[in-house]
Simulated scan of single mutants.
Amino acid sequence: MTIRVLLFAAARDHAGTDAVGVELAPGATVAHMRAALVRQVPGLASLLARSAVAVNHDFAEDGRALGPGDEVAIIPPVSGG
């Protein structure tokens, strides 16, 4: 299955795009998606380890299973004041 992953802020900057398609096996989890995304866009490795993930607008842990049609978003940490 192909999952569309939306990239925000620094993740978008590192990838040079605001979304990527990630091919995953059925039953894949958020952790599998993170690993596949790093293989596809190696420049995201350190940022992805610190980023939150949302699935269908809800924050998700690495063990959450993904299914066809899920919307995944990578939300990097923010700083500022």
Rank of each mutant, 00 (worst) to 15 (best):
V20D: 07
L48C: 06
M33K: 04
G63V: 13
T2V: 14
G67F: 02
D58L: 08
P68K: 03
R34Q: 13
G63N: 12
A52G: 12
E61H: 14
L66G: 04
V38Q: 06
E61L: 12
L6P: 11
V38N: 05
D58P: 01
V38W: 07
Q40D: 13
V41P: 06
D18Q: 09
P26T: 08
V55H: 14
G43A: 13
V78I: 15
I3L: 07
G16W: 01
L44H: 03
H57I: 11
L47I: 02
E23Y: 02
A49T: 01
V53H: 01
E71R: 08
L66S: 07
A73Q: 13
V41H: 00
A31G: 06
A19Q: 07
G43Q: 06
F59I: 14
I3M: 05
L44P: 14
L6C: 13
D70Y: 04
D13F: 00
A73Y: 05
T17I: 03
R50I: 11
H32S: 14
E71M: 13
L7K: 00
L47Y: 01
V41S: 00
A65L: 07
D18K: 05
P76I: 14
A31W: 01
F8D: 07
A11P: 11
H14T: 09
P68E: 15
A31R: 02
A19E: 14
D62Y: 00
V30K: 00
D13S: 01
V38M: 03
R64N: 10
V78Q: 11
G27I: 00
D18R: 04
F8N: 10
L44N: 03
D70A: 10
V20M: 14
L6W: 01
A65M: 07
V30G: 08
T2H: 09
S51D: 14
P77L: 12
A9K: 04
T29H: 11
F8E: 11
A60H: 11
G43C: 10
L66Y: 02
P77Q: 08
R12F: 09
A60K: 02
I3P: 00
G63F: 09
D58H: 02
A45F: 01
G67V: 12
L48S: 04
G69C: 08
D13A: 01
L48Q: 06
A36W: 07
I75C: 05
A25H: 01
T2Y: 04
I75E: 10
A19H: 04
D70G: 06
V38R: 02
H57W: 04
E61R: 09
A19G: 11
A73M: 07
V30E: 13
A60R: 06
V41M: 06
R39V: 10
G69T: 02
F59M: 15
G67H: 09
A54H: 02
R50Y: 03
E71W: 13
A11V: 10
H14C: 15
A54I: 12
R64D: 15
A73T: 03
M33S: 12
V38D: 08
A10C: 00
V53M: 12
P68V: 12
L44S: 10
L6V: 10
F59R: 07
G43V: 15
